[in-house]
Amino acid sequence: MPITILMADDDADDRRLTQEALEEGRLINEVQFVNDGVELLDYLRKEGKFAPPAVVHRPGLILLDLNMPRKDGRTVLKEIKNDPALRQIPVVVLTTSKADEDIYRSYDLGVNSYIVKPVTFEALVDILQTLEKYWFAIVELPKEM
């Protein structure tokens, strides 16, 4: 069963581009999208609109945008990494911000990678392929509990 990638981004354009990039890269993984930090945590904790009977799979990788409405990426990152049940899930920040402070703070909070959103579509395809290869083929992740 393919591993689910969960992407949290409020930008519909970016979601569309990511979707297209996954298709173009012929990636086998299923991608789920949430619009903001609140939805992301609901998804992970199976709460709100993701509460049973909705069926959600625990993601194998989280792509996190930093600037989101309601609850931004920094706060979500902090909550995930402080939550014993969630902190094993690798989190990759995918954001437009190149600010040193954002980079430093994200790693400080325990992010696994920090990627600045590429300008071109080709670069995005490349990044997603690389991510898939790295996280799902190269590294070993803890077995789902």
């Binding site: 354009d13 297209e20 911000s97 300008v119 071109t120 579509f121």
Partner: peptide, 20 residues
């Protein structure tokens, strides 16, 4: 400049899609 970057990136990205 932060907020301007977003639409700009979109212009570039979808421009790329258009070309492709």
């Amino acid at each position: 400049s932060h907020d301007l970057q977003e639409p700009l990136r979109k212009i570039q990205a979808f421009g790329g899609r258009l070309r492709k």
